[in-house]
Every structure is written in structure tokens, then in C-alpha cells.
Nucleic acid binder design. Structure first.
Length: 408
RNA sequence: GGGCGAAUACCCAAGCGGCCAACGGGGCCAGACUGUAAAUCUGGUGGCUAUGCCUUCGCAGGUUCGAAUCCUGCUUCGCCCA
């Protein structure tokens, strides 16, 4: 280590590789990564590790953190994480994994999302040590002819190799031209950034390869592509996605994270433990060999601890046990005040709706008929039962509680 | 530019003149059970001052005692030919 400047003393290459390879699905090429790490260690030059983020949807969830955590590994080893904001690409829309064209965003939306996004990735990465760039820096200046020249770097056949395009094409679904341009843009970003490594989900492999190709054409060393598995969502089937409603957001409260984690089916527990917690391999085996419920509690605890702290995680466990094993009350019960109508009293269905515990009176009525409503711990059977002025503890289902004050 | 076809509730998808607030599946919500908000089973899933009334089947009109279903125009999308 004496041959490297003190500020860039990297661990031995084998050690770095072992850490970096953990959990990785595709690694193109491992040999190249080793060489790159070796030369970096010799020269003291950190690798430039790129992650492109299109600030298209502003909320990041555990699924995104799989890649971010890998990036953090690089960061901890002393390498440079380059966060590339896809201010230009966000307005094009990445077709990956979509069977439909994505809506395009405006500049303003993109700027706004970027702010929120940055705050959230800060929950995983050390923001003081990232390099931030925007691909608007080069794409805004590129002329149409430049773009055409860029497009000359690949072929239609090459584009159609891509799974999602091929499927859509065969199924007779539309593919807009701009969607074909997207991978080119992403690849060009790598050229501009002189990226050594680019990370992404497994669905990004095609786009990552495009970076390699374009770099080679420009006479640069081709970047190493690494992909991380896609995290399955709370439904245990589809990938985690906010729009599918099966996600845990990094800004969720401890209680929310815990509860949501507990609703994960048993099967994906192992992959969750490996991808979104710091649990060691040995500990994971031990947990999965034991009672599934205990394993899930440990998993949920670890998830909460990663974004809050140990105390919050402990509290979440305790609250969960109390609520679901013993049917007790949650820690925080929202207080709401509602106004009674002319009669000076509110029917339970209307009360639920006005207290925001359901959308409409009819829905409240159904909740009551389904046997899911309790007031002051007494089950309500009649949707017409009315409540006058006073304060009541209202429970709708197992999860929704409120202390409702009715005023006349 | 020409021809053909499609648009149904959160999504997929039946229905093709009255029995339609509209089959079925998914999702979601609730209940039972339990090892958890897993799994499984059951019920619910337009609104309302509710055994009835009102608004829904791309949009606007029309035919009819009566339309999601038939006709006309429009819009959007897809396919085929150019």
C-alpha cells in the first residue's frame, strides 16, 4: 500500500472483488474489472462508477436500493460514484420493462423530482462523496446531425435484439422511434463520463452494453457492466414498483416498513435478506432454517434498522406484536374531528368517510356489514347506528385507527 | 392517402335490444383461521338521506315503450395496403 497516495489506499484487489461480486447477476467482464482495479490501486486513481438516474418518478423504494447498496460498496472501497441525472433522458422515457410508451416529462417536473430523489439516495450513499452530472450538459448542445451520427453507431437489428422491443414488435404493439434512441443516449453518457463501471438492474443489461460499444467506437476503454437482481415486491411476484403498490419507500416510517415487510410472502425472504439488509450469509441460513415467522420478523427488523435505527426497529417489532398478536392499539393514533349533520349525530358509515377512514359512505357501510368496524372496542353491526357529540376510538379493519371527535 | 377493426368499472375481459350497476379472472378491502399484514377459505368491490332512487359501458346526437347492445357523426388506438 506504500505505492499509493494515502488518500487513495485501496484494499487488495481480491478483497475488493469479493465484496463487489456479491449479489451481482451479470458481470461483463470480470477479468477487465480485475485489471481495472489493479491499475487503479497502482496509480491511486479511483474507478469512476456510473449510475444513471432518470428523475421520472420522485419516490425511491427498496428496489432501487439494491443497486444503490452496491454503489455504496464501491464508495466504501474508495472509488468515485458518479450519479448521472438523466435530465435529458427523462424527457425521452426509458422503454425498459414497459409494454407501453412512457409519458414524457417537462423540465420543471424533472428538476423537482431530482431534488426529492437526491435527498432519498442520501439515505444509502454518502452524498458528500459523489460526483453529480447531468446529461443535459451534452445532449442540450447536440445538434440533430450529431444525433444522427450517434444513431449511425448501431443498427436496427441490434436494437431489435432487445427483448422488450422484440416482444412488442412481434405483438404488433407500437414502438416509437424515440424509444430506440434511448439506449444510445444512455450509452453516450458513458462516453462523456469516461465511466469505468456502470451499474443497473438486470433489465438494464442491454443499455449498459450500448455504453461499451459506443466507448469502443470513441477509442475509450469499454466500461464494465454490472447488474443487480430486481427486487421482488410485497406481492412476491412482480418486481417492486411504486405504481404496482408493492413497494416500501425509503422514506416510510419504521412502523410502515416493518408492517409491509411482514406482508411479504415466505418465498422471497432469502433474496430480500441478501439484497436489502446487512445480514451475513451465515445468519441468513440460520434464520431460514428456523421458524418462518421469526425469520420474517428478523428481516423486517433489519430493514427498519437500515433506514432508521435499532431503537426504532425494536419499537416496530413491539408494536407489531401488540397489534396483531394481541389485537392491541398502535402507538400513534391519528386524531380527527368531524362535524355532525343536522340531526346532531352521524351515522357510522358517514362518520368513517368523514374521518378519512374510507372514501365514501357506501364504502363505510360495506365495512360495517363486513364486520370490520369497532367503536370503543365494540363491534358495530348496524350501518345506521349514529353517534352524537363526543370522542370515540374508531377502528376500521386491523390497520386503520382513529380517535374521532364528533362536534354538533 | 385507402381499407378493416377496436373502445365496457383500478387492470384484463364477457355481454351484442328488455332478466344489466353489467359474467369471470386479477388486484384491492373486510371476515375466519393461523406462524405474520404468509398460505387457505368466505364475503364485498359506482353513488346516495337506500328494500328505493340517481349516474355509469370512448364523446355527441338519433331510432325505440325500452340501448352497453341498432343508426349517424366525432375522437382515440391498432392492423393491412400505399
Amino acid at each position: 500500500m506504500s505505492d499509493a497516495p494515502a488518500s487513495h489506499s485501496f484494499p487488495p484487489v481480491d478483497e475488493q472483488l469479493a465484496l463487489l461480486k456479491r449479489g451481482v447477476v451479470d458481470l461483463v467482464e470480470e477479468g477487465e474489472l480485475r485489471e481495472r482495479l489493479e491499475s487503479s490501486r497502482k496509480t491511486g486513481r479511483p474507478l469512476r462508477v456510473k449510475l444513471g438516474i432518470d428523475p421520472s418518478s420522485p419516490d425511491i423504494h427498496l428496489g432501487h436500493t439494491v443497486v444503490l447498496r452496491k454503489l455504496r460498496d464501491f464508495q466504501r472501497l474508495g472509488h468515485t460514484v458518479v450519479v448521472l441525472w438523466g435530465t435529458a433522458t427523462a424527457m425521452v422515457g426509458d422503454p425498459t420493462g414497459k409494454d407501453k410508451t412512457r409519458p414524457q416529462l417537462t423540465r420543471e417536473q424533472v428538476e423537482e423530482n431530482k431534488k426529492t430523489y437526491k435527498d432519498q439516495i442520501g439515505r444509502v450513499l454518502d452524498l458528500d462523496r459523489i460526483e453529480e452530472r447531468e446529461n443535459g450538459e451534452w445532449f442540450d448542445r447536440m445538434s440533430f446531425l450529431d444525433a444522427v451520427a450517434l444513431a449511425g453507431g448501431t443498427t436496427v437489428a441490434r436494437m431489435l435484439e432487445r427483448d422488450s422491443f422484440a416482444k412488442r414488435y412481434q405483438a404488433g404493439q407500437p414502438i416509437s422511434l424515440h424509444e430506440l434512441v434511448y439506449p444510445l443516449m444512455q450509452g453516450w453518457d458513458s462516453v462523456e463520463l469516461k465511466a469505468d463501471v456502470e451499474l443497473g438492474g438486470t433489465d438494464q443489461l442491454f443499455n449498459l452494453h450500448m455504453g461499451r460499444e459506443l466507448q469502443k467506437r470513441q477509442g475509450q476503454p469499454a466500461q464494465i457492466c454490472m447488474t443487480m437482481p430486481l427486487l421482488v415486491g410485497l406481492d412476491g411476484v412482480q418486481k417492486m414498483s411504486k405504481s404496482l403498490g408493492n413497494a416500501i419507500g425509503v422514506t416510510d416510517t419504521g412502523t410502515q416498513m416493518f408492517g409491509k415487510s411482514m406482508s411479504l410472502p415466505d418465498e422471497p425472504m432469502r433474496s430480500w435478506m441478501e439484497l436489502v439488509t446487512d445480514l451475513s450469509a451465515a445468519r441468513i441460513d440460520e434464520l431460514l432454517g428456523g421458524h418462518p415467522r421469526d425469520a420474517k420478523v428478523a428481516l423486517a427488523h433489519a430493514v427498519v434498522e437500515g433506514y432508521h435505527d435499532r431503537a426504532a426497529a425494536d419499537a416496530a417489532v413491539e408494536e407489531f406484536e401488540r397489534m396483531f398478536k394481541q389485537g392491541g392499539l398502535p402507538d400513534d393514533i391519528p386524531e380527527v374531528t368531524v362535524e355532525a349533520g343536522d340531526g346532531g349525530a352521524l351515522m357510522i358509515a358517514a362518520l368513517l368517510a368523514q374521518a378519512g377512514m374510507c372514501q365514501t359512505n357506501s364504502e363505510g357501510r360495506r365495512l360495517v356489514q363486513g364486520g370490520g368496524v369497532k367503536v370503543d372496542d365494540v363491534k358495530i353491526d348496524d350501518p345506521k347506528q349514529a353517534f352524537g357529540a363526543g370522542t370515540y376510538l374508531v377502528q376500521a379493519g386491523k390497520k386503520k385507527f382513529a380517535r374521532v371527535t364528533v362536534v354538533g
